[in-house]
Simulated assay, not measured.
Amino acid sequence: MRTTADRIRQALSFEILGLIIVTPLFAVLFKHPMSDMGVVVLVGATAATFWNYAYNLLFDKAMLRWRGDLRKTVPLRIVHAVLFEVILLLMLLPFFAWWLAIPILDALMMDIAFALFYMGYAFVFTWLYELIFPQAAPVTDKETDKAQHV
């Protein structure tokens, strides 16, 4: 499993790069001032950073428990990204509507656009991150026992 420092590096680099890309893009796309969209994106990124850490830790623990392995197949990467974004969407929807003073349906459409963007971004970012910073294979009880008897 990844160390806490590695998880923090992953979450922060993900969010900082995402902020740089999404703030100007969505300010233009949704015709809101950059300052308003910047607040929405910053609050969303802050919430997502904390959620990213917790979510990836829980997801890795679940993978180890159910599969005994941390490697993700393409379908598993898709499930990982979609589940993360759906939960985050539900957490951020009320804030989007309130801060931008827009109807909840408009906020939902904007939130879905953010989720779709970040879903694709998360898929690519995480894959590249794992290539650049590979994690060590977990040590199994069998390997530990074998090493102790040698």
Rank of each mutant, 00 (worst) to 15 (best):
W127K: 10
A136R: 11
W99I: 01
D69V: 02
A5K: 15
T46S: 14
F14C: 15
T4D: 07
I104L: 14
D111E: 13
L88F: 12
V124F: 09
L17G: 13
F117E: 06
M34L: 15
R65N: 01
Q135D: 10
P94G: 06
A101E: 15
A54V: 10
D141E: 12
A48G: 13
D36E: 13
L93Q: 06
L25R: 00
K146G: 03
A27I: 04
D111W: 02
A5I: 15
D6L: 14
F26A: 07
I16K: 03
L108W: 05
V124A: 13
A147C: 06
F26G: 07
R77D: 15
V28Q: 10
I87S: 03
W98I: 12
K61P: 00
Q135R: 08
T73N: 10
W98G: 02
F59N: 09
F59T: 07
F117Q: 07
T126L: 03
M91H: 01
T140E: 01
A45G: 14
L128G: 01
V82C: 05
E143L: 11
Y55L: 06
P138R: 03
M63A: 02
F95G: 13
A45Q: 03
G68L: 04
R2I: 06
I21Y: 02
P94D: 08
Q135P: 01
R7K: 15
A101Q: 14
T3E: 14
F59Y: 15
D106K: 05
E130M: 09
A147I: 12
V40W: 06
L128K: 03
I87Y: 04
E130I: 05
T4F: 13
L105R: 08
D145Q: 12
D69K: 12
M34P: 00
I20C: 13
F123R: 05
L12C: 12
I78Y: 03
A47G: 09
L17R: 00
W51S: 03
P33N: 15
T73K: 09
G44D: 00
V86Q: 00
L93M: 06
S35P: 00
F84R: 01
L57M: 06
L108H: 01
S35M: 11
M37L: 13
I102Y: 08
Y121A: 11
L42C: 06
A81E: 04
D69M: 05
H32A: 09
R67F: 07
R2S: 12
T144E: 04
I104M: 08
L83Y: 02
A48M: 11
P24F: 06
D36Q: 14
W127T: 15
I102M: 14
L17I: 14
A48N: 12
L58S: 11
M110C: 01
A137I: 05
A122G: 15
T23G: 03
T23R: 01
E85Y: 03
M34D: 02
A11K: 06
Q135S: 08
V41W: 05
L131D: 01
A62P: 00
L70W: 04
L100D: 09
K31N: 13
L116D: 04
F114W: 12
K146D: 11
E15H: 12
M110W: 02
Y121H: 07
F125I: 08
F84E: 08
V124R: 03
